[in-house]
Every structure is written in C-alpha cells, then in structure tokens.
Simulated scan of single mutants.
Amino acid sequence: MARHTREDAAATRARILASAQQLIRERGLHCVTVADVARAIGMTRGAVYGHFRSRAELLGALLSCAEADFAARLAPLAQGDAGTGPHALEKTLSDLLRGDELARHVSLVAALLQHKCGEACELCPLRARVLRGVESLRAAFAVVLPAPGLAGLLVAHLWGLLGAHAMQLAPSGLSGSAVALARLYRGHVALSAAQLGCRSGATSSAARVRDTP
C-alpha cells in the first residue's frame, strides 16, 4: 500500500479547493455539492470528506483563501509601507488590483453576501465573516483617502470592477485601473472641498449683506 505523505495530502487538498472554486464560478454556489467537486477531479465524495468534514468546512477553506489574498495585497498598507500623501492611494490600489487573481473569489463572496435565511445555517457564519472583511477593507482605505467617508464608495467601486471582470465584462489587467481610480477619488475630494468653499463664501456674503444697515 502506498504511503501518503503530508505533501500528498496538501496537494490533494489544493486540488479539491481548485475544483470547488472553478465549479462555483461556473454554476454558482448553491448548485455545487461535495459530490460535484469530487466528480470533477476523479475522486469519491468520501475521499473529499477525508480532507473536509463538511461542505461548510470546504466553503470556509475557500473563504480563507480569499481572505488571505486580500490580506497579502493590503499588507503594505497595514504595515505602514504604503506611504502617505496622494500617492499612497494609488500604491494601495495597485497592490490590490495586481494581476487578475482576486476575481476568482467573486462568485463565492457574492453568493455569501446575498445569502439570507430564516434560521441559522452553514452559510450564515461565512456571511458574517465576509461582512467583517468588508468593514476591514473600508477601514483600510479610510487611512489613505483624504475624505474617509469615501471608503465605502471606493469598496463598492472596486467590487463592481472585480465583478465585471469575473463575468468577462471587463478586460484583464485590472491593475491599469489603479491610477484612474486614484485620480478619480482625489479629484472628487478636491471638487467637494471647492464646492464647500463656494458655499461657505456664499454664506459669508449673505451674512454681510444681512448685517449691512
């Protein structure tokens, strides 16, 4: 009987995760079972359960991969290596959008965000993890945005880009969007400040008029 090493187990686990991820992208989360994942790579369902005790554990491992990808790309920001000033946002966006690998997580994350049920189920804890991750992402961007209140909008903007790429509605090479996005958000802040200044000036003028006998 062949002996299975730790490396063999890790390689098999990686194959199972890759199979699950691909099927979820093709069919959607709710149309993929453990049996489907096993069949796609020539394994039995029991063999998959030897690595993941449940479908929820398998999905949790996939979500961990997504969390690790985002964390690795945001590491320079978390460690204070992104710098400060107008170029910090551009660098952070460039690190996040480098390559197209993040788009592979869109189907899973989208399905978990949209998940709703009347009672606790295997997906509810995973959805809670996604929501915590979204809040962490907002907090991370708030550090490099001149107006922290724009962080939520930027996260939504990035999610739209990733989703469009995952559905093949946007070209590959999302990193090219980093400069344009950074300029857009810096320009938005400058415009808002200018508008605020105009309103303040108008208010002051109005006040002087009213105070004039």
Rank of each mutant, 00 (worst) to 15 (best):
R98N: 12
G201W: 01
L150T: 14
K91W: 00
Y185A: 03
L77S: 05
G176K: 07
L158W: 03
D69L: 15
A38P: 00
R199E: 00
A207P: 00
V143M: 10
A182F: 04
D211R: 12
L74W: 11
D95Y: 04
Q195M: 07
V32L: 06
Q168T: 15
S136W: 15
L169G: 10
I24E: 03
A202Q: 01
L161E: 13
T212K: 06
H105N: 11
P213Y: 00
H30N: 08
L181C: 10
E26G: 04
E26D: 11
A128S: 08
V48Q: 01
A11G: 09
R73M: 12
L181N: 02
D8N: 13
A140N: 12
L131S: 13
W159K: 15
H30C: 11
A10H: 00
L196M: 02
S136K: 15
R13C: 04
R208E: 03
G83D: 05
Q168I: 07
R39W: 04
V37Q: 00
M167T: 14
C121F: 04
R13M: 02
A75V: 02
L137E: 12
P171V: 13
Y49Q: 05
A66E: 10
A38F: 05
K91S: 13
Q79E: 14
A156C: 05
G46R: 12
T5N: 02
L145K: 05
V34Q: 08
C121S: 02
Y185M: 03
Y185N: 00
R13W: 03
P76T: 08
L145R: 07
A9N: 09
A142N: 05
M167C: 07
S204H: 10
S94Q: 03
M167G: 07
A14R: 10
G133A: 00
P86Y: 05
L123F: 08
W159D: 15
L150G: 08
C124R: 10
L108M: 10
S177Y: 10
E101L: 08
E122F: 13
S175F: 11
L96T: 04
A156D: 09
L150S: 11
L17M: 07
A166E: 12
D8S: 09
A190Y: 11
E67Q: 13
S64L: 13
A38R: 02
L153E: 06
A11H: 00
D81S: 07
E90Q: 09
E57L: 05
G28M: 12
L108K: 14
T84V: 03
A56T: 02
A140Y: 10
R210F: 10
V130I: 12
A38E: 02
F70W: 15
A47N: 08
V37S: 06
S64N: 14
A20C: 04
V155Q: 07
A72V: 14
A18F: 04
G85T: 04
G42H: 11
M1K: 10
A2S: 15
Q168V: 06
R3A: 15
E90F: 06
A66D: 11
E122V: 09
A147C: 03
L102C: 15
A61D: 09
L191S: 03
R183F: 13
C124P: 06
E57V: 06
R55D: 04
L145D: 03
L181A: 11
A9L: 04
V32C: 07
A78G: 13
H30W: 12
V34M: 04
P213L: 01
Q21C: 09
L196I: 10
Q195T: 02
H105I: 11
K116P: 06
